[in-house]
């Protein structure tokens, strides 16, 4: 990738083109495996690159398992020494039983389970790559109508490896990091739509955006969008600089997912209030963004979960360690 803005322009043009086969384009442009090393068939991009692309994907409510494929499955398989198949992938942690090449068990709420060419599963002891022929899928969704499926397996699975050390923590962090980017993007998308609508919808003889009450609400939403974006980008930047295993990254990702999750509810609330009744219809596109905001804030650790994690870290470290933790310098 030649520069940050080239990458953003590319992502913007890809996600905006709704006519094309989005996943195919992501594969062809290398965005589908952006952070996987080139030696493993990826594009060798950074976590900052991935964050920027995911924020664009979120803003377009892109219906693809991009975070799952690139940040999670490709990373996990590669880290375990397994080769990374082509096609859309997904990854989850799950308590499957692995013995003598036989894998059995059930995974719940697997993102994009039904469309995945491979499901990378981190069990307490192994990394297992499941393929469609080995599993039975019962379909389910999240609030945004994205696939969250129940996947049952009872099959001989040749592709297994030992779980790398620390993989469970890193998988959880990467999932939250990716989700925070998507949330930040979707929040920005919902704000953009609301600002646009406020400039078009006329009541009392003028666009509603001319009313100061509406302006103040949209400015509050803008502040939330800025906070989510800054937090998500800063967490990616920390992860890139310090590595996903660093304590500073754990702190940053927890803070970012908690903050982005908080902003999601506020931005969705204001977006709907500004849109009036049209916004709550099936026909209107706003729901593509707001239902994802509501779904994603609770996935990969809700605000409550990450706030508690962060609070426990801070409390255990003691009052004098608070500022060093916030600045990332002990």
């Amino acid at each position: 990738m030649s520069s940050d803005s080239d990458l953003l322009d590319l992502a913007e043009s890809i996600f905006a083109d709704t006519g094309a086969d989005l996943w195919k384009t992501l594969e062809e442009t290398g965005l589908a495996r952006l952070t996987l090393p080139e030696s493993a068939g990826g594009s060798g991009g950074t976590l900052t690159d991935a964050a920027a692309v995911l924020q664009v994907a979120g803003a377009h409510a892109a219906p693809v398992p991009l975070a799952e494929t690139d940040l999670l499955a490709a990373w996990l398989l590669h880290a375990a020494g397994l080769s990374v198949p082509t096609g859309p992938l997904t990854a989850v942690a799950g308590d499957l039983h692995v013995a003598d090449g036989r894998v059995t068990g059930t995974l719940t709420r697997v993102p994009w389970g039904r469309t995945a060419a491979g499901i990378a599963v981190l069990t307490p002891s192994h990394v297992v790559l499941l393929t469609p022929g080995q599993v039975t899928v019962t379909e389910g969704t999240n609030l945004g109508e994205e696939p969250r499926d129940t996947v049952t397996v009872d099959a001989d699975v040749p592709t297994t490896a030992d779980a790398p050390a620390g993989a469970a923590d890193e998988l959880r962090l990467r999932a939250a990091l990716g989700r925070a980017q998507l949330l930040a993007g979707a929040a920005r998308g919902a704000l953009a739509r609301s600002v646009q609508y406020a400039g078009e919808r006329v009541q009392f003889g003028r666009p509603i955006g001319r009313f100061q009450a509406v302006q103040q609400q949209l400015a509050l939403a803008a502040a939330e969008v800025a906070a989510a974006g800054a937090a998500a980008s800063a967490a990616a930047s920390t992860a890139e600089r310090d590595g996903c295993g660093a304590a500073s990254t754990a702190f940053a990702v927890a803070a970012a997912k908690a903050r982005a999750g908080e902003s999601a509810g506020e931005v969705a609330r204001i977006a709907h209030q500004v849109h009036g009744a049209i916004g709550v219809t099936r026909e209107h596109d706003l729901r593509l963004l707001t239902t994802r905001l509501w779904a994603w804030r609770d996935e990969d650790g809700s605000e409550a979960y990450w706030q508690a994690q962060l609070g426990a870290t801070v409390t255990a470290a003691g009052p004098d360690a608070l500022w060093p933790l916030v600045t990332g310098m002990p």
């Binding site: 937090a231 803070a255 908690a258 903050r259 908080e262 990450w306 994690q309 609070g311 426990a312 916030v326």
Partner: peptide
């Protein structure tokens, strides 16, 4: 900081503390 010192050893406030800290960290970023 003083609040954290007063809370030391009292469980139950982690979520609220974490909420403030996440907001602080985002603001500083």
């Amino acid at each position: 900081t003083a609040m954290l010192a007063e809370l030391a050893g009292q469980p139950g406030a982690e979520r609220e503390v974490g909420r403030l800290v996440s907001r602080l960290w985002a603001l500083r970023s």
